[in-house]
Nucleic acid binder design. Structure first.
Length: 274
DNA sequence: AAGAAGTCCTGGGCGC
DNA sequence: TGCGCCCAGGACTTCT
């Protein structure tokens, strides 16, 4: 569910509200959400710590704490992280509650229970599986047209599964990958190594554009996504292909089709995307 | 080594 | 109305 724009929106919301607060109590209702350390150590080590800084890397949220600890959170498909006033009740899907020194609470909720948390020493981040191998941040200066060209070279894989590979580019998911490919007018089925210079340039611009627009619209809410304040985003109203099977392409009027690539749905306009 | 498939979960939507 | 089936925005593990 949450891809880069959604995670960035949550990160910015939390940053505005919880920096400098202490974690006064941790209630872990579903221990399996925490991958490491043990539930007891998770609670013990978090309690009393100060929230120093919040970052995003790919689809991960990093909450840096005092004593060089970092709480790493991945929301996967249906997770959300919401800052709530003291009286707000939690839901049946709330699995972790962080009580803060101002009386407010941070709820981690996740219907499908796929989301995960890790609490580690900050310096161990660089050796954490899944995190250490993340690819380039697509909105950073490091991500250039030349880098994309270099990375695509010789890759005998279809574009869509490659864009979803977090070690290739960090933060793209199914929605923004489909939207970027449509904006670039390239088929998700195309082999990565077959792109022309012109197509690479268009894809580069499209990836940056769809992600930036997603952030400007505070994320895409289909069903579950909520920002850090519990509100929906508005980017779902701007989508050109995702979840629009059978509806006319805004560009040419032909119906949007849905195909399967590596087991995932891809939405495209077969007329516009070659 | 790369790429595909299976797996972890719950709930919504659809067809019968 | 109700049941069963399929689908879902992710990514790790296992297989070929």
């Amino acid at each position: 569910m949450p891809e880069l724009p959604e995670v960035e929106t949550i990160k910015r919301d939390l940053e505005k509200n919880i920096i400098g607060l202490n974690i006064s109590e941790v209630i872990l209702l579903m221990p399996k959400i925490v991958r490491t350390p043990s539930p007891q150590d998770f609670i013990k080590n978090l309690t009393g710590k100060t929230i120093k800084k919040i970052e995003r890397r790919g689809k991960y949220i990093l909450i840096h704490l005092s004593e060089k600890l970092t709480l790493l959170i991945h929301l996967r498909m249906t997770g959300n992280l919401v800052y709530c006033s003291p009286k707000t009740p939690c839901s049946k899907y709330t699995h972790v509650i962080f009580e803060l020194s101002n009386g407010y609470k941070l709820f981690f909720s996740d219907m499908r229970q796929f989301g995960r948390m890790v609490l580690i020493n900050s310096h161990e981040l660089c050796s954490l599986p899944g995190f250490k191998d993340l690819g380039v941040e697509p909105l950073s200066d490091t991500f250039t047209r030349d880098l994309l060209k270099k990375e695509l070279k010789g890759r005998r894989i279809k574009l869509k599964p490659l864009l979803l590979d977090q070690t290739f580019i960090a933060g793209l998911g199914n929605i923004y990958a489909d939207e970027a490919l449509h904006m670039a007018k390239i088929s998700p089925d195309k082999l990565a190594s077959m792109l022309t210079h012109r197509e690479i340039a268009h894809l580069y611009e499209a990836i940056r554009e769809v992600l930036s627009n997603g952030i400007a619209n505070r994320g895409t809410t289909f069903r579950d996504y909520k920002d850090g304040m519990g509100e929906k985003g508005s980017n779902q109203d701007k989508l050109k292909v995702y979840s629009r099977e059978g509806k006319p392409c805004f560009n040419c009027g032909k119906p949007i089709i849905r195909i399967k690539l590596s087991g995932r749905s891809s939405y495209l306009c077969a007329e516009c995307q070659k």
